[in-house]
Amino acid sequence: MRHEVESEVQGSVWKVETEVGRTVAVGDVLMILESMKMEIPVEAPVAGTLVALLVVPEDAVAENQVLAVIDDGG
């Protein structure tokens, strides 16, 4: 099953810490967002394979915007 990883905040992408095709575990940091001078890590909500990365560094992101997609293999 595919799981969409959404942004909890409005901000921008500072750093992407993974790449498409990688296996991720629950809690792995996928990317770090920046908003109001704070760094906000985005963690994998489920274990699986990262099948899509929808943003690149410097991108502006909205609240609830889908950032990445993980396939849990189930």
Partner: peptide, 11 residues
């Protein structure tokens, strides 16, 4: 401007 428990910023 933040969520008081998570301390995440709120815009």
């Amino acid at each position: 401007a933040e969520h008081p428990r998570t301390l995440l910023p709120s815009t």
